[in-house]
Measured scan of single mutants.
Amino acid sequence: TRVETATETAWISLVTALHLVLGLSAVLGLLLLRWQFPAHYRRLRHALW
């Protein structure tokens, strides 16, 4: 049971790290898009909202 718990903890930390990385890359990508294509971003936002 001790090994299982350790594996579970490792998986949880791995998944958390993955989610953090994905979230950060998504935010960075959005910022980059907004910085590179302001007109396109505004049009996209206008279409979405």
Results as ranks from 00 to 15, higher is better:
V21F: 13
V15E: 00
E4C: 09
A39R: 15
H19D: 01
L32M: 13
H40E: 09
T1S: 12
S13F: 14
E4V: 11
G23L: 15
W11F: 10
L22G: 08
H46E: 09
V27A: 10
A47L: 08
T7A: 11
Q36D: 00
L28S: 04
W49G: 05
I12G: 03
A17W: 05
P38K: 10
L22D: 02
G23E: 04
A6E: 09
V27T: 12
P38D: 14
Y41H: 08
V3G: 00
L48K: 04
L30G: 12
A47C: 09
V21M: 11
S13W: 14
W11N: 01
V3Q: 00
V15M: 06
L30K: 01
A10Q: 10
L14K: 01
E4F: 13
L31S: 12
G29W: 07
G29S: 14
A26W: 08
S25E: 02
Y41D: 03
H19G: 02
L32R: 05
L20H: 03
L32G: 01
W11R: 01
W35Q: 11
R34Q: 07
T16S: 10
A47V: 09
W11T: 03
A17I: 12
V3E: 00
W35P: 12
S13V: 12
A10G: 11
L33N: 03
E8N: 02
W49P: 00
R43Q: 10
E8Y: 06
L28K: 06
A10E: 12
L28R: 03
L28P: 03
H46M: 07
F37T: 03
L30A: 13
T7V: 14
L20M: 12
L22R: 01
I12C: 06
G23A: 15
P38V: 08
A26F: 15
T16Y: 05
W11V: 08
L31Q: 10
T5I: 05
L28E: 02
T16G: 06
W49E: 01
P38R: 14
L18K: 02
T1M: 12
A10C: 03
T7F: 10
L24S: 04
H46S: 09
L18I: 05
G29I: 14
R43V: 09
R45C: 06
A10N: 06
W11S: 04
T16L: 11
R42K: 13
L18C: 05
A6C: 08
H40R: 10
G29Q: 01
S25F: 06
T1R: 12
L28Q: 02
R43T: 11
L24M: 15
T7P: 09
L33Y: 06
V3S: 03
A6F: 07
W35N: 13
A26I: 10
W11A: 00
R2Y: 13
E4R: 11
S13L: 11
A6L: 09
S13G: 14
V27C: 10
H19Y: 04
T16M: 11
H46L: 09
V21W: 01
L24A: 08
R43L: 08
V21L: 12
Q36F: 08
A26G: 11
V21Q: 01
H40V: 08
L20D: 04
L18Y: 03
L48A: 06
S25L: 08
W11M: 08
L48G: 01
A26R: 02
V21D: 02
A47T: 09
A26S: 11
L14A: 05
L33H: 05
L14C: 03
V3C: 04
L28C: 04
Q36M: 15
V27H: 00
A17N: 00
G29Y: 00
I12D: 01
W49N: 09
P38A: 14
R45L: 07
A26T: 13
F37K: 03
W11K: 01
G29V: 14
E8K: 06
A17P: 00
L24Y: 04
W35T: 15
H19F: 00
T9W: 10
A39Q: 14
H40D: 05
Q36V: 15
L14T: 01
L22Y: 02
E8M: 00
L14M: 13
G23F: 15
V21K: 01
S25A: 14
R43D: 08
T9D: 09
A10W: 03
L31R: 05
S25K: 03
R42M: 09
R43A: 11
L20A: 12
T16C: 12
L33A: 15
L48S: 06
L44D: 04
L32F: 06
T9V: 12
W49L: 06
H19A: 02
V3T: 01
L20E: 01
T7C: 01
A10T: 10
L48H: 00
L22P: 01
R2G: 11
V27L: 13
L20I: 11
A17V: 12
R2A: 12
R42I: 09
A39P: 06
R34G: 06
R2P: 13
L48I: 15
R42V: 09
T7W: 11
R45W: 02
A39C: 06
V3L: 11
L30C: 14
T1C: 11
V21C: 14
L31D: 03
L32I: 07
F37C: 08
R45K: 15
R34W: 00
R43N: 08
R45E: 04
R45N: 00
V21I: 10
E8I: 04
I12Y: 08
S25N: 08
